[in-house]
């Protein structure tokens, strides 16, 4: 087979004509893409449940540790509770930014 045969076959393809409604269909799709989707409501119930679970886990871990070496972990439960309280307090301020990145 000659390359010219291939060249002719591949370059001589008949063009197709766009459908009559193509332009308007594209513009509809373009406009749809500009409409902002409603943001998903933040799952507060799950979040608070998760935080509560974290606090319980941290307190349990601290109590276990105190059983092993009370002198080191004596202050752990109040510190954990304080940290959890700070996190719970700050979370509503930053959750939008955190979840937008995710």
């Amino acid at each position: 087979m000659m390359m010219t045969d291939l060249d002719r076959a591949l370059s001589s393809e008949e063009p197709i004509v766009p459908s009559s409604g193509f332009t308007s269909a594209v513009m509809d799709a373009v406009r749809d893409s500009t409409i902002a989707r409603p943001s998903t409501p933040f799952p507060w119930a799950r979040c608070l449940l998760g935080l509560a679970a974290c606090v319980v886990w941290a307190m349990g871990a601290a109590n276990l540790a105190m059983g092993i070496d009370a002198s080191v972990f004596e202050l752990a439960p109040p510190l954990v509770l304080a940290a959890a309280a700070v996190l719970v307090g700050l979370f509503p301020l930053y959750w939008r930014r955190i979840f937008r990145r995710a």
């Binding site: 393809e13 063009p15 197709i16 004509v17 766009p18 193509f22 332009t23 594209v26 513009m27 373009v30 406009r31 500009t34």
Partner: peptide
């Protein structure tokens, strides 16, 4: 001006459709 995009669509629709067709 989103409507201005229609000019681009009209000028290039044939070319883009035919490339996809191939």
């Amino acid at each position: 001006d989103v409507a201005a995009f229609e000019g681009i669509v009209r000028r290039w629709q044939s070319r883009l459709i035919n490339l996809a067709w191939r």
